[in-house]
């Protein structure tokens, strides 16, 4: 049991060690000008320095908070909308082109407009993240809900379930997996949009950190910022996966 755990951790660590090794190789091989690639240990030192003296945690927290809030609000809106679209075919035929139009717009292209209408405050960043989360979540929800087979509803009807009971006891359990998938997809998209949203005059946040560093060409700081984003996103995804695993023990295939 214990040996198994150790083995898994080791296996999980190999690709990371490999990536760091590759990083050193690229730097030392001279393919790229070494001054353009900070060494891993230099980035690690920068990380510690930022953590201790520059309040890196404040940035991490600011970004995590924005992403979480944007995703929660976006999904809170996407679940009912996606559900309606998936459930009522006519609603889909009429809303589908519109949804796909807005979904195809990269959030970054909206930033000038967002600044005009929402200013440069926290609200503006939230709007961009909400937008990204909502449209990615809606698609997942309605694709999922539209694939629910009528069989289970029929079974419930023949056992005497009322409309409300069918909703509570059949449709909700069948929708939960799609809500969780929508959350995971939206989280991914929201982290990807974060830097863009923090282009809007952010003081703090990982996106802001990267923006500011790029003005002064502080490559090591940029690396720290990028790695932090990836790391926090990974942790959040792992948490969601753990929750999915608990809620969806009944599912045929394990949630990947």
């Amino acid at each position: 049991m214990k040996a198994d755990g150790v083995k898994r951790i080791l296996l999980g660590a190999i690709p990371w060690l490999g990536a760091i090794a590759l990083w050193y190789v690229v730097r030392w091989s001279g393919i790229v000008n070494p001054s353009l690639i900070p060494a891993p240990h230099a980035v690690a030192m920068k990380f510690v320095e930022l953590l201790l003296h520059e309040g890196l945690l404040v940035d991490v927290w600011a970004s995590t908070q924005r992403v979480t809030l944007g995703v929660l609000l976006g999904i809170a809106a996407a679940v009912p909308v996606g559900f309606l679209l998936g459930w009522y075919r006519p609603a889909r035929t009429f809303a589908d082109p519109m949804i796909n139009f807005f979904r195809a717009l990269p959030p970054i292209a909206l930033i000038p407009l967002v600044i005009v209408y929402f200013g440069v405050d926290e609200m503006a960043k939230l709007v961009v993240l909400f937008y990204a989360a909502f449209f990615s979540g809606v698609i997942v929800m309605y694709e999922g809900v539209s694939q629910i087979t009528p069989l289970y509803i029929r079974v419930a009807q023949t056992l005497g379930a009322s409309e409300l009971e069918i909703f509570r006891k059949v449709i909700i359990p069948l929708t939960v997996p799609h809500i969780l998938t929508a959350l995971r997809v939206a989280l991914g998209v929201a982290w990807a949009t974060l830097v863009a949203s923090e282009l809007i005059a952010a003081q703090r946040g990982l996106g802001a950190l990267i923006q500011n560093a790029s003005t002064y060409f502080l490559l090591d700081v940029i690396y720290v910022g990028i790695i932090c984003i990836g790391f926090v996103a990974l942790v959040m995804d792992m948490i969601l996966r753990a929750i999915s695993k608990r809620l969806l023990v009944w599912q045929e295939r394990a949630v990947a």
Partner: peptide, 26 residues
């Protein structure tokens, strides 16, 4: 109705499946 495709609820345990109808208002 006993359906040709069974329609066993995958999200409920065996016992909960049998109990399903008995938990309904009807």
């Amino acid at each position: 109705v006993i359906f040709q495709e069974y329609g066993v609820f995958p999200w409920l345990t065996v016992r909960q499946n049998i109990a399903f109808g008995l938990t309904l208002h009807a």
